[in-house]
């Protein structure tokens, strides 16, 4: 890949577009859920307003807090930003596309978890420890599926970078379904399995209802929320925004698995952007639907769900090694 200034500019545009859209997707899901419950619901743009408000508030630090409390919110936020720098959402050449290795993405997510849980344990509150423990519980269970999903994608397409992977699928699908040539390279079953698997992992990693319910402050439902219980002011803002970014990362990867369409040149960008937003909205509706119909799970039943996700990605892996 040879980069020129155009790639750089559109990479930056793509990066900022995703960042700006992130709270919208989270707000949209929230709104859908509330409407489905018969509430009036928040403004779709409420989360932007919240973030802005949180930036203006003062930070209340615990007297037991150490330097971790000062740096963790930034590192959590920044590690999601770096993942977004690698992800191609609607433009093929993302900014860090050269080094957008799939394993790196999975481990960057772990980096964010690492600092978030350290933050949780920093103030010596029992809730923080509880949240950190549960967060790692989920991460330990979902990390194998996440890495399996990414590695099956890499094996399926014989590419290691996430930009190349989805471009390969896009090209293969276009060739197979539009032109009818070289159809052996594409499969319907593998993306299907990976999509479901990633959906389950996404739900558990993003604190969505069958696993977690961040809207309440009950300790029974505390996974994500217990971690950031002590955060306030701009720290809370960064954590909240970080969680929207994480959701967006998962949704973007899902949208690319579902229907990879990335612009290769400038003229395709508007269409690609529209397709991207449409896909994301469909996925938001899907997630909101799952959240509405399913009840919160008992913590120790979550492994059942995640093991299914692992198994599905394993089947996808077996399917993708078929050709060798």
């Amino acid at each position: 890949m040879n980069y020129n200034i155009g790639h750089l500019i559109f990479g930056i545009i793509q990066f900022f577009t995703i960042i700006l859209l992130a709270p919208f997707f989270a707000g949209f899901i929230h709104k859908l859920k509330q409407r489905a419950r018969g509430q009036k619901g928040i403004n779709i743009f409420q989360f932007y307003i919240n973030f802005n408000k949180l930036l203006k508030k003062e930070i209340v630090l615990s007297k037991d807090a150490t330097f971790i409390s000062e740096i963790a919110p930034y590192i959590v936020f920044v590690s999601y930003l770096v993942i977004l720098l690698m992800l191609p959402a609607f433009y093929r050449y993302s900014l860090l596309g050269v080094s957008s290795d799939v394993i790196l993405i999975a481990y960057s997510l772990a980096l964010a978890t690492f600092f978030m849980t350290l933050y949780a344990m920093d103030q010596g509150s029992a809730f923080g420890g509880l949240g950190a423990s549960r967060e790692w519980f989920l991460t330990v269970l979902s990390e194998p599926s996440l890495i399996f999903i990414f590695i099956s994608l890499a094996i399926y397409t014989k590419q290691g970078r996430i930009t190349d992977i989805f471009y390969f699928i896009q090209k293969g699908a276009a060739n197979a379904f539009l032109l009818g040539v070289n159809s052996d390279a594409v499969s319907i079953a593998i993306p299907f399995l990976l999509f479901i698997s990633l959906f389950i992992v996404g739900i558990s990693e993003n604190a969505r209802i069958p696993v977690d319910n961040p809207e309440t402050h009950l300790e029974l439902t505390m996974f994500h929320e217990a971690n950031i219980l002590e955060a306030s002011g701009k720290h809370l803002g960064l954590f909240e925004y970080g969680s929207y970014l994480k959701l967006t990362v998962f949704l973007t990867v899902m949208s690319l698995i579902l229907f990879p369409y990335m612009a290769v040149n400038i003229y395709q960008i508007p269409l690609a952007l529209i397709v991207y937003i449409l896909k994301m909205i469909i996925l938001c509706i899907l997630i909101a639907g799952v959240e509405i119909v399913s009840p919160k799970m008992r913590v120790f039943r979550v492994p059942n769900l995640l093991s299914v996700s692992f198994m599905l990605s394993l089947i996808a892996m077996i399917l993708s090694i078929r050709g060798f």
């Binding site: 197979a176 379904f177 319907i188 079953a189």
Partner: peptide
């Protein structure tokens, strides 16, 4: 050809 893929699914 596409049928094959669907059968696979």
């Amino acid at each position: 050809m596409i049928m094959e893929k669907i059968a696979e699914l």
